[in-house]
């Protein structure tokens, strides 16, 4: 076998190993998991890594909503909407069911999954 062929094979093997490592790393790191995204009128206003929160704090969203951020969870602390469904929703810590304030067009979604077990691709009824 020529030296140039050996170099060629070595390059390919290295590339394959790197590609496999990259795929494994991306899966194990679970990019985007536990990130709460706050939307106001369709625009992203805040992205929070709930796993990195150590002390609770509040964020005002638009004119009428205040969001409470706590370690590992997030909730609507207060809202000036008449039905108060978003406040009654309580705190969420996974992607199962978002917090929505329809009158003020505010929503909080947690991307990825912080739960265990089999994860669905979509949820009917939410």
């Amino acid at each position: 076998m020529k030296i140039s062929n050996k170099i060629l094979i070595f390059s390919f093997v290295t590339a394959v190993v790197l590609a496999v490592a990259a795929v494994v790393f991306i899966h194990s790191a679970g990019i985007g998991e536990g990130i709460a995204v706050i939307y106001l009128k369709g625009e992203v206003v805040e992205e929070i890594d709930l796993n990195a929160v150590t002390e609770s704090y509040t964020i005002d969203v638009g004119d009428g909503n205040t969001v409470l951020v706590e370690p590992g969870r997030i909730s609507m602390l207060s809202a000036d909407c008449p039905d108060q469904l978003c406040v009654k929703r309580g705190a969420i810590s996974d992607s199962l069911y978002p917090i929505v304030c329809l009158p003020n067009e505010v929503m909080i979604l947690i991307s990825g999954s912080t739960g265990s077990g089999q994860q669905p691709d979509a949820i009917a009824g939410r």
Binding site: Q118, D121, I123, G125
Partner: peptide
């Protein structure tokens, strides 16, 4: 799904919206 398996769709539990009724 791209891997050829079927989509897994959860139905929310109406008594506890923090849980699934089933898949």
């Amino acid at each position: 799904k791209p891997d050829g398996s079927k989509w897994l769709v959860a139905v929310l539990d109406p008594s506890d919206t923090n849980a699934y009724l089933g898949m």
